[in-house]
Amino acid sequence: MSAQRELRLRTCGALRAGAPALPDQQRTMKTKVIQVSGLLLTLVYAALILWLYATEPRSFKEAASGAELAAGTYQINQEKFAAGQRLFLAEQFRAARAEWQQADPAQGDARTQFYIAYSFYREGWGRVYYDQDLFKQGLEAAKRAANLSATSQLTVADPNLQMHTVAELQAELEQGLERTLSDANPLKVFRTRK
């Protein structure tokens, strides 16, 4: 209650000395509660908008997966992942990637991203030359895997693979993208795929 108003009411005798001015206090309190809750609510909404623009989900499903990832409750589809592995071993790399992309729509699982990168490596590897586009995509996936496993070193103990860490795979993909004089070496046809 403003001092002027209080003085006016006291002069009129409406408020006795020492009597609490309850209605005004209640209203001020109510306004404060509305202001604080409004601020909090709209700040949370603004944070959600920023997050949406930062992650740019392509569908509502992807947005939901992203939210799960942010909340730490994200889990990949294990069945799809296993199906992708079977296709990978059968050298059907594109089909394997399609399965893994469905298994990990939010691209939030380091192991799945490692396998996707590996499939790009194996598909792009050639005895005479490497497919640059596939290697570039593989490098992107490997970088995603590296970012996701930044806190702990990811080691994939799969006997069907010859590279078990993201660092090895990333180095191999980067090497394949480099243009050097050794590319002209005819003996490179004897190198083996990892």
Partner: peptide
């Protein structure tokens, strides 16, 4: 405090 910021944020 609530409605107008929500409207403008939805527009944003």
């Amino acid at each position: 405090f609530i409605l107008l910021p929500m409207i403008f944020l939805t527009v944003a």
